[in-house]
Design a protein around this nucleic acid. Structure first.
Lengths: 208, 208
DNA sequence: TCAGTATCCTGAGTATCGCTCAGGTTCTCT
DNA sequence: AGAGAACCTGAGCGATACTCAGGATACTGA
C-alpha cells in the first residue's frame, strides 16, 4: 500500500520456480501467508509472512509480484478445491433436480463454512480485479451448469445464460451472507431450506 | 495501512465541526474523497484527498479518524439518499405486490447505477465492520418490509424475518452483480425482469 | 572433475504512506 | 478589547511494501 504499485497491480512478471527448493519456497510462503492472513487479517505484513515461511522477503517477492498476489494465489488454491467438489457433485447423481439443488447448496456451504482465511478473502481484503476474477471463476462454472439445465428445458441459450448468472449470483450471496451467518445448526439448516426454496422456485419460474 | 491503526479501527473520537468554515471543510473533504477514491480506488492517498479539498491533512484528520472513516462517511451519505428513495417507494402506492416489487427493484437499480464511487464502496475497499454495518442498514429496512409482507400472508414472525433477510440479500447481490453489469439498456431491462421474476417466485414459494 | 551459467536466496535500504502534534490563525463571546 | 475556544497547518515520525546488488547453490557440458 506504499511503494510504486501501479494502478494495474504489477503484473505477474515474476520468476517461475524451476528447481525443487524454489518450489518448496513458494509452498512455504503460501502456507505462511494463509496462517498469517488468517491470524491478522489483511494487516499481515509481508516481512512477517516471509519470516514465518523461513525465507527472506526478497525470496517472497521473487515469486509474488506484491502482497495482493499472495491473496490471489491463496484464492486460486481454495477455489481449486471448490471447483473439484462442485464438479463431483454435478457429475455424480443428477437424481431429481430439487435434490441436486440441495446437494450443490450444501456443498457450497461446507466449502465456505467460516474459516479465518475465508473471511480475509471475502471481507477484509481490498477486492483487486485479479482477486475478483478468481473468485468469479467458480460462479462462472455453476452459472454454465444452471444455464444448461434451463436450456434443456427449452429456454433460449442467451436467455438461459443470463438467467443462470442471475440465479447463481443471488444464491452465492445468500449462502455467504445469510446461511453462513447462522447461529445454530438448526438455524443453519432452516436457512439452507430458505435458499433451496428460493432456488427451486426461481428455476421453475425461469423455465415457465 | 501503516501507522498504529488498531485492529478495531480507531473509533470516531474526533472533533465535531461547530463553525461554518468547519462544516465547509468537512464537506470539501468528503467531495474530494469521493472524487479521488473514484479515480484511483482505495489506493487514493489521504494527502491527495486533503490537497484536492484544498485543506491540510491535519484538518482532514480532525474530522475523520482514519482513511476508512472517509469511506464510511461516504457510504452514509450515499445511503441516506437510498433510504429516502426506498421509503418513498414503499409508502407511496402499494398497488399490486408484483408491481411493488418491480418498483422497488427499479429504484434500487437507479440508486446504484454504476458510478466510480459506487464501485469503490462495493468492490475496491476492504470491508471494515463499520462499512459493512452502514451498507447493511438499507437492506435491514427492506428485509423488514419483506418480512412484514410475509407475516401478513400468515408466515410466522421469526420465519418471515429469516426469509425476508435471505431474499433481500439475494436480490441485492443480483442487482449489484447482475443487473448493473448489463451492457445495453435492453439487456438491463431484461435483467431486471430476471430479478423481478426471481423475487416474485420466491415470495410466492415463501408464503405457500 | 570443474569451470561457466542459470537459478535462487539474502536483507539492509529506499520510497512512500497513514497519521500526529506543536504552534499559529480565526472566530465567538463578554 | 481580550480571552478562550474552535480551527487550521504541514513538517516529520513510525511503519510498511517492495528493490537490488551481491553472494550462495544447483545444473550443464566437456
Amino acid at each position: 500500500m506504499t511503494a510504486p504499485r501501479s494502478l494495474q497491480t504489477a503484473r505477474q512478471r515474476r520468476r517461475k520456480p524451476r528447481q525443487e527448493r524454489a518450489l518448496a519456497t513458494v509452498s512455504f510462503v503460501l502456507d505462511a501467508a494463509a496462517q498469517v492472513f488468517a491470524e491478522r487479517g489483511y494487516a499481515a505484513t509481508t516481512n512477517e509472512i516471509a519470516a514465518r515461511a523461513g525465507v527472506s522477503v526478497g525470496s517472497l517477492y521473487q515469486y509474488f509480484a506484491d502482497k495482493d498476489a499472495l491473496l490471489v494465489a491463496l484464492a486460486e488454491r481454495h477455489l481449486a478445491e471448490a471447483q473439484a467438489s462442485l464438479q463431483s457433485v454435478l457429475e455424480d447423481a443428477p437424481t431429481e433436480p430439487d435434490q441436486l439443488v440441495r446437494r450443490v447448496i450444501e456443498a457450497a456451504v461446507d466449502l465456505n463454512r467460516p474459516s479465518a482465511l475465508h473471511t480475509v478473502l471475502y471481507q477484509a481484503a481490498p477486492r483487486t480485479p485479479e482477486l475478483v476474477e478468481v473468485l468469479d471463476r467458480v460462479r462462472h462454472d455453476l452459472a454454465a451448469a444452471v444455464a444448461a439445465l434451463l436450456a434443456e428445458a427449452g429456454v433460449d441459450a442467451p436467455v438461459a445464460d443470463r438467467r443462470g448468472h442471475a440465479l447463481v449470483v443471488a444464491v452465492d450471496a445468500a449462502i455467504h451472507e445469510h446461511v453462513l451467518a447462522a447461529t445454530t445448526p438448526e438455524d443453519e439448516s432452516a436457512r439452507i431450506n430458505d435458499v433451496v426454496t428460493l432456488t427451486t422456485a426461481t428455476l421453475a419460474a425461469y423455465t415457465r
